[in-house]
């Protein structure tokens, strides 16, 4: 039996986090605010990745490729054919004539990428473990080449510059503040969606398939449906993150979402903790700040160069896998155990 204290405690923690996110811009510089915006964007991408890898047990090394699809969808919708031609290139006729407001492109990017993710999920059904990792890695490696090849749709290697974003509807917010709230409102909504999915019937089905496909089938769970669904949802999350990213930097090119980002995303999910939503926030902070801190004091005095970030990342990942399989979330769980024990007493 769960006592009423557990949901109340969870609600308090969430409300506290939301409040902290809401008031943070008052206490921080615009530069820092930009970094926290990236944390929000990575948070969205990692939520999707953790649904796919942590909950449904399918590994992907191509998450950044889905971010790229979302980013390009948003960029093309923002520019429209007229904006595209202003960049001095001939535009494909599939584009709408006029551009859209940036904020409306975010859900569309999520939907488009989600549909593409479902389509990719169907051949992926026949693959598991290593083969799936291979196929997704190959997608991630090839996507920049494909983007460069189809210039009429992507602007080729030169990329697409977007108009500088600003707060819509006449709201009085500076651009960094607006982008920060945009990212974190998306993150908040998608966190709630993920939480509802994971704790309900769908989440149970995913975990059942992950822990034993045969047993899941015998219990009436269709792996094909739920695995494809996981791919679609993960891709939709990546699409939203990619759109947010493209809007944040107001530029996109084939190398905006490199293969290494796919690998670092997977690493961050594992560092935060597979199959843990609270671990995702740790992962997002690690992904944004670990490379930055790897080149600042005291580490910089050890003559760490810019490339030291990935080394620290890779070593951290290996240490976590070897020593703390549950990731940061399991450490967090150990620290908060007395409180949770009290709440569910």
């Amino acid at each position: 039996m769960r006592r009423w204290t557990t949901p109340v405690l969870q609600g308090l923690v969430l409300a506290g986090a939301a409040l902290l996110i809401a008031v943070l811009p008052r206490f921080t510089s615009e530069f820092r605010l930009g970094q926290f915006t990236y944390v929000g964007i990575y948070f969205v991408a990692l939520l999707g990745l953790n649904i796919l890898t942590g909950y449904s047990g399918q590994i992907t090394l191509g998450h950044a490729a889905f971010m790229a699809i979302g980013g390009y969808t948003a960029a093309l919708l923002i520019l429209g054919r007229s904006g595209f031609e202003l960049l001095g290139q001939q535009a494909s006729h599939v584009l709408p004539e006029h551009g859209m407001r940036a904020i409306f492109t975010i859900p569309i990017a999520g939907l488009v990428t989600g549909v593409i993710g479902c389509l990719f999920g169907i051949p992926a059904l026949r693959l598991a473990g290593v083969s799936l990792a291979l196929a997704t890695l190959a997608v991630a490696v090839s996507l920049p080449a494909i983007a460069k090849r189809f210039e009429h749709l992507t602007g080729g290697g030169g990329g697409l510059s977007l108009p500088l974003p600003h707060a819509p509807f006449g709201w009085h917010l500076s651009t960094p503040h607006w982008l920060y709230y945009e990212a974190w409102v998306c993150a908040g909504i998608l966190f709630v969606v993920a939480w509802l999915l994971v704790r309900g019937r769908v989440g149970r089905a995913w975990r059942a398939i992950r822990d034993g496909e045969v047993a899941a089938v015998s219990s009436g769970v269709s792996p094909a449906v739920y695995k494809t669904l996981a791919f679609g949802i993960a891709a939709a999350y990546a699409g939203v993150a990619g759109a947010l990213f493209a809007i944040q930097v107001s530029y996109i090119n084939p190398d905006t979402f490199p293969v290494t980002l796919s690998l670092l995303l997977l690493a961050s999910v594992v560092i935060g903790g597979l199959a843990s939503l609270s671990g995702v926030i740790v992962g997002a902070f690690v992904l944004e700040f670990l490379p930055i801190y790897a080149q600042s004091p005291p580490l910089v005095h050890l003559h760490f160069a810019k490339q030291a970030g990935p080394v620290v990342f890779g070593v951290t990942l290996m240490l976590i896998v070897l020593l703390i399989p549950g990731g940061a979330a399991s450490l967090l769980g150990r620290v908060t155990r007395p409180v949770r024990a009290w709440a569910s007493r």
């Binding site: 890898t53 047990g57 590994i59 090394l61 473990g129 290593v130 990792a133 290494t260 690998l263 670092l264 997977l266 690493a267 594992v270 760490f304 160069a305 490339q307 030291a308 970030g309 990935p310 080394v311 620290v312 990342f313 890779g314 070593v315 990942l317 290996m318 896998v321 070897l322 399989p325």
Partner: peptide, 23 residues
């Protein structure tokens, strides 16, 4: 340990060596 764990470990090695070479 499960296959996925070893795959993730080799990816950690990938990231580390790639960074090390650049560094």
């Amino acid at each position: 340990r499960p296959e996925i764990v070893i795959v993730i470990l080799t990816i950690g090695l990938f990231i580390a060596i790639n960074g090390l070479v650049g560094w």
